[in-house]
Amino acid sequence: MGRLQDKVAIVTGAGSGIGRACMELFAREGAKVVGCSRTQSNLDETLANVSRDGGEGIVVAADLSTPEGSQKLVDAAIAKYGRVDILLNGAGVGYSWEKTHAGSMGAVTETTPELWREVMAIDLDSIFYMCRLVIPHMKEQGNGSIINISSVLGVKGHPDAHAYTTAKGAIVNLTRSLCAAYALDGVRANCVCPGFIDTPMIETHISMFDDEAVADRFCPMRRTGTPDEVAYGCVYLASDESTYTNGSIIMIDGGTSARI
Rank of each mutant, 00 (worst) to 15 (best):
Glu98Met: 09
Ile260Tyr: 08
Gln141Pro: 08
Pro194Ile: 02
Ala14Thr: 07
Ala102Met: 05
Asp160Ile: 14
Val155Met: 13
Leu115Lys: 09
Thr199Pro: 02
Ser248Gly: 13
Ala76Leu: 03
Arg52Lys: 15
Leu124Gln: 07
Phe218His: 14
Ser207Asp: 15
Met221Gly: 00
Gly92Glu: 07
Tyr182His: 15
Pro220Glu: 09
Asp44Lys: 13
Tyr95Thr: 14
Ile252Ser: 05
Gly57Glu: 01
Asp85Ala: 10
Lys99Cys: 07
Glu98Ala: 09
Gly225His: 12
Val11Arg: 01
Leu4Pro: 05
Ile197Glu: 08
Thr226Leu: 02
Gly82Asp: 05
Ala61Leu: 12
Arg117Pro: 00
Ser177Asp: 12
Ala161Trp: 02
Lys32Ala: 13
Cys193Tyr: 06
Gly55Asp: 08
Ser207Gly: 12
Ile147Gln: 02
Ile58Thr: 08
Val60Ile: 15
Val8Arg: 11
Asn89Gln: 11
Met130Leu: 12
Asp211Phe: 13
Pro194Phe: 06
Glu203Asp: 11
Ser207Ile: 01
His162Ser: 13
Arg222Tyr: 07
Arg3Met: 10
Val214Ala: 13
Val119Lys: 06
Thr111Val: 12
Ile122Ser: 04
Ser242Met: 10
Cys22Gln: 05
Glu118Ile: 03
Cys193Asn: 15
Arg176Met: 12
Ala215Val: 03
Val8Cys: 07
Cys193Ile: 04
Asp6Trp: 04
Ala161Met: 13
Gly54Tyr: 08
Val119Ser: 02
Ala189Arg: 10
Thr204Val: 15
Leu184His: 09
Ser70Trp: 00
Thr109Gln: 13
Gln5Pro: 00
Glu56Ser: 12
Phe209Met: 04
Cys179Pro: 00
Val59Gly: 00
Ile86Trp: 07
Val152Arg: 14
Ala77Pro: 01
Gln40Pro: 01
Cys191Glu: 12
Ala121Gln: 06
Lys72Asn: 01
Ile18Leu: 09
Leu43His: 07
Trp116Glu: 02
Gly2Asp: 06
Gly154Ser: 05
Lys80Glu: 11
Asp75Tyr: 04
Ile86Asp: 00
Thr165His: 10
His137Arg: 05
Trp116Ile: 03
Ser177Gln: 14
Thr12Gly: 05
Lys156Tyr: 08
Arg20Gly: 00
Val172Lys: 09
Pro136Trp: 07
Ala102Ile: 11
Ser104Trp: 01
Ser37Tyr: 01
Glu68Ser: 11
Asp240Leu: 04
Met105Gln: 15
Asp125Ile: 02
Glu56Ile: 13
Cys191Gly: 06
Ala48Ile: 08
Ala213Pro: 01
Val235Ser: 01
Cys219Ala: 15
Ala76Val: 04
Val192Thr: 06
Pro67Ser: 03
Ile149Asp: 01
Val34Arg: 06
Ala79Lys: 14
Thr166Cys: 12
Tyr232Pro: 00
Tyr182Met: 02
Leu184Thr: 14
Ser104Pro: 03
Thr224Leu: 12
Val187Ile: 13
Leu237Asn: 10
Lys168Met: 01
Pro200Met: 09
Tyr232Thr: 07
Ala102Thr: 11
Pro113Lys: 02
Thr204Asp: 14
Tyr236Lys: 09
Ile135Lys: 05
Gly195Gln: 09
Val8Gln: 09
Arg217Tyr: 07
Ser207Met: 08
Leu124Lys: 10
Arg83Tyr: 05
Ser16Glu: 14
Ile18Pro: 03
Ile249Lys: 11
Ala170Gln: 07
